[in-house]
């Protein structure tokens, strides 16, 4: 019997950011999926079992807020924890993220400690 690995979906239009978050996710023994925008991410989330979503705000095609709002309307995907990771550090930006349906908000560049701490909490079911 193979061990179960949690899966994180990383959504960012910047390749380097996706690679960086992938490296942190994989160091925590999670599986990483990647998407360049909200539309591609919804397709991936429908296709694969996803335990956590890390999403940027400013992206072409579908931005992070629109993605989270769309996700929250889905019967099948609506309960997935979402961490919004943005360059925007104002309180109003965090409020917008939470209003859209995000569970947590990190300011870029997120530290390895922040990401791995979240993954650890989710692994033991303490976030949501």
């Amino acid at each position: 019997m193979t061990a179960h690995h949690n899966t994180a979906l990383i959504i960012d239009d910047a390749t380097t950011v996706r690679m960086y978050h992938r490296s942190l996710v994989e160091q925590a023994d999670w599986i990483a999926l990647e998407a360049e925008n909200g539309v591609e991410a919804l397709e991936k989330a429908l296709e694969f079992e996803v335990d956590l979503i890390l999403v940027d705000v400013n992206m072409p095609v579908m931005d992070g807020y629109s993605f989270v709002k769309a996700l929250r309307t889905s019967d099948t995907l609506g309960q997935i924890p979402v961490v919004m990771i943005s360059t925007e550090a104002q309180l109003v930006d965090k409020d917008k993220a939470f209003a859209a349906g995000a569970n947590h908000y990190l300011v870029k560049p997120a530290s390895p400690a922040d990401i791995t701490h979240l993954l650890t909490l989710l692994t033991v079911g303490e976030v949501q």
Binding site: V57, N58, M59, P60, V61, D63, G64, Y65, S66, V92
Partner: peptide
């Protein structure tokens, strides 16, 4: 302030 409008402008 709106992300979708900024992306439209980009």
């Amino acid at each position: 302030d709106e992300a979708d409008r900024r992306n439209e402008a980009v």
